[in-house]
Structures are given as C-alpha cells and as structure tokens.
Design a protein around this nucleic acid. Structure first.
Lengths: 217, 217
DNA sequence: CCTACCGATCGGTAGG
DNA sequence: CCTACCGATCGGTAGG
C-alpha cells in the first residue's frame, strides 16, 4: 500500500472545494481564476496544484460530489417510502433541504458543468439522469396516465425548475426559509398535477421524452 | 457568412447582437472573447468596437432589449384582459412563446446580467421587477388570501422557475414544443395554486417578500 | 526519496 | 476597417 497522505490532506482538499464552489457560484467558472481560488484558500497557486491536477479537476470534484449526494438521497427515499404521495413529498422536501445546505455546489452543477469536455461531463450527466428518473418514476406512480403519455419526465423537469430557480431569488436571511418552501412547492405541484393533460399526439411525446438526456437537473 | 449587401448601421448592430447572444448563451459572458464575437460576425475586432463601446455594452444591449420586450408584453396583456384566470393564462402562454423566439437573449438575461457593474445592472433589474410585479398582481387577483400573506411574489418566482428552466432541457427539435408547454405549465400552476397555504408567521413573510429585489425573472 | 509547499516566471491570450 | 500592438492577467509549472 502506498504511503498514507499527510493528516490534513483531505481537510485541505475539502476546504479548497468549498472555497472554489463559492467563487464559481458567484462569478462563474470561466470568470474565476486559479489565482483567486488560491487567494481565497490562503495558499499559493502552486499549492493548489498539489491537490488538484488542473482547474477542470476542481470543477469535476465539486459537481460530481454534489450530484452523487443527490443520487444517494433519491435511493434512500425510494427505499424508505412505498410508492405514493408520501414518497413524492419526501423527495421534494429532502431535495430542497439538501440544496439549501449546498447552494454553491448546486449552482456549479447547474451552471458550470457545460464547460467540461464531453467525456468528463458524461459521468456527471449519467448521475443527473438517474436522479431525474427517480422523480419521473415517482410522478408516474402517482398518476399512471401521465407516465403512459410520456409526461412524467417533462413534469419532473418543471418541478426541478421551481426548485433550482428558488436559489436565485430566495434570500438566505429572509423570513421565508428553504424549509418553508419545500411544502409550498409540494402543495403546488401535487395540487396541480391532477389538472395536467398531455397534449395531442401522445406517442410522439413519448419519443420526445426519451430525448431529454442533457442538463437534466 | 457573407455580409448582406445593403446592410446599414442598425442592421449590422442587430446582426452583432444576435450572434453575440448566441455565443454568450453557449459559453457564458466571461467565457466568450471579443475575438470570437468578431469572427462569428465576419468582421475584425476593431470593427466590432465601432458599433459597441466595450464588451459590457454588448451585454447590456442584449439583456435590456429583451427585458424591455417582456415588460411591454406584460403591459399589453394587462390592458387586454380583465383580472382573472384568462389574464393569468394569457400571461403564461404569451411569455413561453416570447421566450421560445428569444432563447439566447433570455439565457443572457438570466445568466449573465450579474456580470455587469451595479449601476448598469440596476436599470435592467428595474424592468425585471415590473415584470414580476405584473405576475404577482395577477396571482393575487386570482386568490387574494395569497396576496395578503405575501405569497404572490414567491409563487410568481416558482412560476418563472418552471418557465426559465424549460429552456435548459426542452429540445427545440423535439415533438414536445414550447407552445405545447404553455398550457401544461398553466394547468399545473392554476391547478395547484388552490392547494398552497402560507407558512406560519405570515406578517414576517410579507416583509420577506419585499426583500426580493434582485434576479427576479 | 518522499511530502508539502514557496517565490518567480513560463508561453499565450484576454480586452481594448 | 485593418495591422499592430499595449498593460494585465490567464492556466499551469520550473527549480529548490
């Protein structure tokens, strides 16, 4: 076995990931320099390159780490709840809470993964797809006719839209908290999903739904 | 691409704005160079600077032009429909159609305005605020108790979330079109809005709603 | 011969 | 409207 890393190695890595996520979330990936990341971490740029091969490696670590947690969260909720509205509500409320604790990483996932080369991006998109599928399946269980019409994935994406967009306007210091918003989003979505009808040419829509493969969260 | 023979100053400006919006939407504002914009327009970088003072001037023109059209659209719908669900539906469906025709400009508005200096950004945010207020007012007309609880703005933002996020996942070549999605979003929203209850401490939420001033579309 | 860094600078390219 | 540049900063790496 290889010689173990120094005691603080993983702690330093985690610190860098958190500071970099904050900067990327604020100024975007191309708008953030490695010099700025190094400065925010109180270390030289050369030290930064001791922990991460290059700038892309930083981005991958932030985004993949976050989406892996979301993936695990979906698996845990699916295992803990039988099909039905309780499962769907748990999914939404757990997601909103998870996002609230990882706002910077989430913004990096939704905004900056597109800057990665295709091969690197693909592994992250695969995890995103599993997360979307978990939501789509839960929606189809709730109202099977939507699943048959190929509407469960588009509806899952509308749901993600409400949740993802929240983090651009909800003030962390406001009286309305992320935890308040979980039940509101769930009420709106489950109250409304009964009123949704698929447009005509349902077969074509089902084919269309299969094509939704990129930028899924 | 060949330059149109009789292109005047304004035509050249519009061409540059469209090409620049396409590039900014794809690679982000900091990720796009003026050299790339010039090349996409078939002109030298120096020529570009004949039409726009600097890079920020390009961004402002794209974003402000787009949000000004949205503002005018809200005013037109409010003038054409009395308060009620017909007004709200018209607002949603007209917005989705407008976005579909201006996807690049819309992405620039939502993603890149944050890179402008504060004074420049403020004029654009003021227009965004007017658009959000139009939606929030329409929601409050539909269910006055939500307005009294300070929930009409948060609900307007959830609605914008569904619509804005659509443009990250809906395939322009898919069988499911933007026009299909307008009624679906409206059904989901109006079906669900009846089920939404404000969280406790409604007075505090009203104060919170007032603080929602940035990044409102 | 390893790790954990440092000060300084590399070749290229950004906006203007 | 182009070529030729500028001050500065980019991502990444040298020797010690």
């Amino acid at each position: 076995m290889a010689r173990p890393r120094s005691a603080g190695y993983d702690d330093q890595r985690d610190l860098i990931l958190e500071r970099a996520a904050t900067l990327f979330a604020k100024a975007g990936y191309p708008g953030t320099s490695m010099n700025e990341v190094a400065e925010a971490c109180g270390m030289s740029k050369a030290s930064l390159y001791h922990y991460f091969r290059d700038k892309d490696d930083l981005l991958v670590s932030i985004a993949d780490g976050h989406v892996a947690r979301l993936e695990a969260l979906v698996d845990a909720v699916m295992a803990a709840h039988p099909p039905g509205e309780a499962r769907a509500r748990a999914l939404i409320e757990r997601f909103v809470d998870e996002y609230a604790d990882a706002q910077n990483a989430h913004r990096v996932l939704t905004d900056d993964v597109r800057f990665l080369p295709e091969e690197t991006r693909e592994a992250i998109l695969a995890r995103e797809r599993r997360v979307v599928d978990g939501f789509a399946q839960t929606i189809a269980e709730l109202k099977p006719s939507l699943g048959e019409d190929g509407m469960s994935k588009p509806l899952a994406m509308l749901l993600f839209g409400m949740i993802n967009w929240m983090f651009t306007w909800l003030r962390p210091d406001g009286a309305l908290t992320h935890s308040d918003m979980g039940p509101i989003v769930a009420d709106l979505f489950f109250g409304g999903v009964g009123a949704v009808k698929a447009p005509r040419k349902a077969a074509a829509k089902q084919r269309a739904a299969k094509r939704i493969t990129e930028k899924e969260i």
